[in-house]
Amino acid sequence: MSLIELNAVTKSYGSHQVIYDATLSIAAGEVIALIGKSGSGKSTLLRCLNGLEQISGGSLRIAGTPISYEKAKLRALRRKVAIVFQGYNLFPHLTVEDNVALAPRVTGKASGTEALKLAHRYLERVGLADKFRAHPRDLSGGQQQRVAIARALAVQPEILLLDEVTAALDPELVGEVLTVLGELAEQGLTMVLVTHEIAFARRAANRIAFMHQGRLHEVGPAEATISQPRTAELQKFLSAVR
């Protein structure tokens, strides 16, 4: 059974439709990269998956459960589907370890020490064992983004969403974040990522979904989709970004 099932999903803001008829199944353990021009609807689609955006039509099932926007159900969904943002969005008044430990402690009902242990484990996993007590403002962008990834992982989600997580980083910091993501992919975490890093998508993702004008224009195995794009739009997009 697939973990995420989109069936004819649409999304509009008032009369302005941004997603048309999105149908896609994502299996557990799969890594899917959403690529496309800015404004093609890929971030919006991603944000639909944890309910940050409400779908306007069609159906969306996560782990077999149809999405509900009732508050308690939405909170339950978000413990299954975590997200990392382009702008990190770390809590500026908390230390790195507290940023990561906060959610397990207050939503996962872990005790303070358990939550901190968990936080340390995930911070080690993203290579920040030496930054537990640092404040976000003292870290580089790449480090902050890795804290954000650790924070999302500490919720112990089934699915990790990543919204252009390297787009705001200086080029020399992109690598460290992609390395972490590559490792997570190898460990079998289900991930959906919106990215401009085509080479990374090709290497780390199982499948690639190309979005164009609000539609899932072309979806296929990562390697083949990049090396032999079938549609003219994807060809054009790929040649533009190279």
Binding site: R75, R78, R79, N89, L102
Partner: peptide
């Protein structure tokens, strides 16, 4: 407060009180 921070809290499954 940046909108992203509120979204981050939402996305971690916080209740309004949290």
């Amino acid at each position: 407060i940046p909108k992203g921070l509120l979204e981050a809290g939402d996305s971690l499954g916080f209740t309004a009180l949290q």
